[in-house]
Simulated assay, not measured.
Amino acid sequence: DWAAVIPPINLPENSRGPFPQELVRIRSDRDKNLSLRYSVTGPGADQPPTGIFIINPISGQLSVTKPLDRELIARFHLRAHAVDINGNQVENPIDIVINVIDMNDNRPEFLHQVWNGSVPEGSKPGTYVMTVTAIDADDPNALNGMLRYRILSQAPSTPSPNMFTINNETGDIITVAAGLDREKVQQYTLIIQATDMEGNPTYGLSNTATAVITVTD
């Protein structure tokens, strides 16, 4: 039998190597008395994208040959085979799963650079105005892909510099102060920032967009 079941291998994307980078050694217990040859099959080995994973046919050492990209392929499912010197299968194929672990290598991208919305003058605080949306190619279930929104600036800053607030998770922009008066200010321009890592200012990656809010009669 195979010397061990191979637990899933977790491999961070964008590894710097050096390559080939050794992952695990696959052995059959029958190797003691037979000269076995090992091979791996599946997408990433002998099927496209070929040659990412290679195995030493004699030692059974499985290696990865280059950096991986989770945004292209998040998981590989390979099968390892053992044959004797005559090519006869001596073991049932064993499954090898390689999970590509997400790194924060994508910054948020707003779906539009400029967002246009409107709000009636005299609207009460808490009135919904519009929603801005950004997306991130990193894993949405990991901090790398969890976005938070905030308003960086409002122009003009009258009658108050904080006429609006943004729901930091949904991107909904809402009025927060009274005093929207079309005769005084017809349009507000907000700079909105989206930051991943749940908005962490130190580690998160950010991008900005503009929200133009017209005050209607």
Rank of each mutant, 00 (worst) to 15 (best):
A178P: 00
P159W: 02
F164L: 02
M146F: 09
R79H: 13
R148N: 10
Y128P: 01
T41Y: 08
H81I: 08
N168K: 07
P12W: 04
T165D: 14
D29C: 03
L11Q: 04
S118H: 07
Q113P: 00
L68Q: 06
V132G: 11
T210W: 05
I54S: 03
T175H: 06
R79L: 14
F76P: 08
I98K: 03
G17A: 04
A45M: 12
L68A: 05
P125S: 03
L62I: 02
D136V: 07
I85C: 07
P140M: 08
I191S: 14
A3C: 10
S153C: 05
G87D: 03
N167C: 13
T214A: 01
S153D: 10
E13V: 03
I54P: 00
A194K: 04
I9H: 02
R107H: 10
N33K: 12
L62E: 00
N207H: 12
V129K: 02
M146K: 13
I54A: 11
M197L: 13
G122S: 04
L143M: 05
R75G: 06
Y188W: 13
D217C: 00
T170K: 10
V176H: 12
D196T: 09
I191M: 12
D181T: 10
S59I: 01
A134C: 10
D84A: 04
V5C: 12
P120L: 10
P120E: 11
T127Y: 11
A142C: 01
G17W: 03
K124F: 03
S39G: 13
N167Q: 11
F53I: 07
N144G: 15
F76C: 11
W115C: 06
E109P: 00
A155N: 11
T202P: 02
L111C: 00
N92P: 10
D181K: 05
N168G: 02
Q47H: 12
V5S: 14
G117L: 08
G44D: 07
P201N: 14
N162T: 15
T216C: 02
V176W: 09
Q113K: 04
L180Y: 03
N92E: 15
T50R: 15
P159G: 00
R148G: 06
L180F: 12
V64C: 07
S15Q: 11
